[in-house]
Design a protein around this nucleic acid. Structure first.
Lengths: 188, 188
DNA sequence: TGACCTTTTTGACCTATATCAATGCACAGG
DNA sequence: CCTGTGCATTGATATAGGTCAAAAAGGTCA
């Protein structure tokens, strides 16, 4: 049941099989229909998800009611409202599924228990944070230094999976432009 | 010479005096004039700075030559191009001093040596990453969900030190607007 | 006390992108 | 096999914020 998770951990950590078994035992496989909200703004994030299949995203909603996608996690990635998970404060973002998804979830208590019990898991978590930092750092740079067209072109070059797999509506909200603008950009 | 640093570490970690001495010994005090570039785009970031006095910022430069400030660190904070420091790849941002500054610097090798030698230091680093993640997460949210005026008002409410201590030019580039727009916003 | 340099403000005008509205399309559920 | 509901496209128009230029206001240092 947790084969894929174990395989992923084997690739990304120096944990031995015995440790991996103990860690994998903390995860539960859960499946969700497309467009299921996993966490709403204002809730406290209690679970982290490892995406086995499908995909989930984190997004904001503006005062005007517009969705702004911050991140989309495809299979092999970990996601959730990490900010809320870390701080155990009210989340300022939403999390939902964009497709039918199979997710391995781990709760807050178990996760941090693993962090203190397994130095290699702490290392894994640290590396996760480092990668997440880099990701957001680049995202800020792209938002403030590039035009709409440049952001689209760059995504096309660096992460075409976003363009292949997401609807225009979600893609536009990820690029911080409207659907209409995206549609016009594409036809150029 | 490293008194302030030791005091800061005492407050923010569970390290004992002996460990703090060893750690503080890895830092060197350096002073810089106002507007000194500490790191340019394309260079690899070899040092992390703990700000004793003054302030330093990290910023991007667009194709059109405009500066876009990502972060400003005042005293008690740690800063640099963390992305480049972590990855040891070319930096995509600049780092400079905005005032005459006294900085404690630590190099890459020593920093990660401390991470492996002192579990409490690794914990400190992890917490630093967690806080940095939260910071950037909020920054993305503000950029994509708020108008120029709303970003200004929120900064005024949450972090007035930015408005008190930075020039309009820097402040505008931090808010991702022009100096002229900022000037007009202020008079409303 | 100037002379100089940088920052801030103000005004006129411009542009990238948003908004609003209409149409065609597509596929999910009864 | 309809039929509704959401998604994509296209056109007309609006607007937040940018650009360019010049004047006003501070600092700084000989």
């Amino acid at each position: 049941m947790t084969e894929k998770l174990k395989y992923y951990l084997k690739l990304n950590t120096n944990l031995d099989d015995n440790q991996i078994d103990k860690i994998a035992a903390c995860f539960k496989l859960k499946t969700f229909k497309k467009n299921t909200i996993l966490l709403s703004e204002g809730e406290i994030c209690k679970e982290l998800y490892f995406v086995h299949s499908g995909c989930i995203r984190t997004y904001f909603i503006t005062k005007q009611g517009h969705e702004k996608t911050r991140y989309v996690a495809f299979n092999g990635s970990i996601a959730s409202s990490i900010s809320s998970f870390i701080s155990q404060q009210q989340s300022f973002e939403f999390v939902d599924t964009l497709e039918y998804s199979e997710l391995y979830s781990i709760n807050y208590r178990d996760f941090y228990q693993l962090v203190s019990d397994f130095p290699q898991w702490e290392k894994f978590y640290r590396t996760l944070l480092e990668m997440a930092y880099l990701y957001q750092n680049k995202r800020i740079k792209n938002l403030v230094t590039l035009s709409a067209k440049q952001r689209y072109d760059r995504l096309m070059a660096e992460n075409p999976i976003y363009i292949q797999r997401l609807s225009n509506k979600i893609l536009a909200s990820y690029l911080d432009i409207t659907q209409e603008t995206l549609s016009r950009l594409k036809s150029k």
